[in-house]
Write a protein that binds this DNA or RNA. Sequence first.
DNA 1: ACCGAATTACTTGACAACATGAAATATCGA
DNA 2: TCGATATTTCATGTTGTCAAGTAATTCGGT
Lengths: 143, 143
Amino acid sequence: MTPRADHLTAEVVELIGTVVARYHEEYEHAAAEHSLTGAQARVLGLLAREPMPMRRIARSLKCEPSNVTGIVDRLESRGLVERRPDPADRRVKLAAPTETGRATAAQLRDSLDFAREPLGELSVTERALLKELLQRMLGVTPE
Amino acid sequence: MTPRADHLTAEVVELIGTVVARYHEEYEHAAAEHSLTGAQARVLGLLAREPMPMRRIARSLKCEPSNVTGIVDRLESRGLVERRPDPADRRVKLAAPTETGRATAAQLRDSLDFAREPLGELSVTERALLKELLQRMLGVTPE
DNA sequence: ACCGAATTACTTGACAACATGAAATATCGA
DNA sequence: TCGATATTTCATGTTGTCAAGTAATTCGGT
């Protein structure tokens, strides 16, 4: 595989680690302001985009489906999410945000200042550059 | 505060989210290969750099000191870490990696291919550019 | 210099959330 | 009907918080 990382690469890795830590901190904080845990906020954000079966939530979160049951339970007991039957398949339950849930998700998205604010430090050109570098790094091939 | 994010910024935020997710995945995976949890791996990595009192571990992890007790307990029961008295202050306990712990930490660091491998996609110039952009974003002022 | 009070470091215990894996139930598809 | 799939439940372990408790240090006043 890759040989031992050079100094520059190591520095970048370190920086990414810092970004990750900062991101998490901000995310948890934003979630906590709505009395949500990180996991709950993630699921709510996911469902705000599009209702989906439990199974798919689990795939998105990369965790076991049995875990999702509990998270959705807690969201449901707070009236942010509801389970609806899937007309096409009676085994599956579609989790969908309620009206309140959608509102909370929107507020949450807005208060997710993490990258928005620091990105203000960068010019438009730089942001575009950063975007391209990250895409390349992630192996995203722009169509 | 910052006005509603423009399209470009939103894209970059999204990308950062993806980077964060990928990073975590890789980190947990690397930790699991040594039968460690993410938190345990983080603490071990921290101590491999430099032994430190429990309180400082808590500050690094941004969690309560009482939480660190349990994590270090588990690492200690597996012989990866030991608690030593601080000669200067009998209240504090210094957590330090054992020989095995240091070896595990080194392996862990090496298997942390996340950013190393994808960064291979970028040229040296690009990596330097990325480093600078991330530093600016994080508000790091290079001396 | 001394003594008592506040502070600090760590642990313990109770409790909630998250996470996994195995087993149970219900439904689908071939 | 049989095997696969979607969800839940249960047992268990780790991470996290908070409040209370113990031990050691520091500081202020005399």
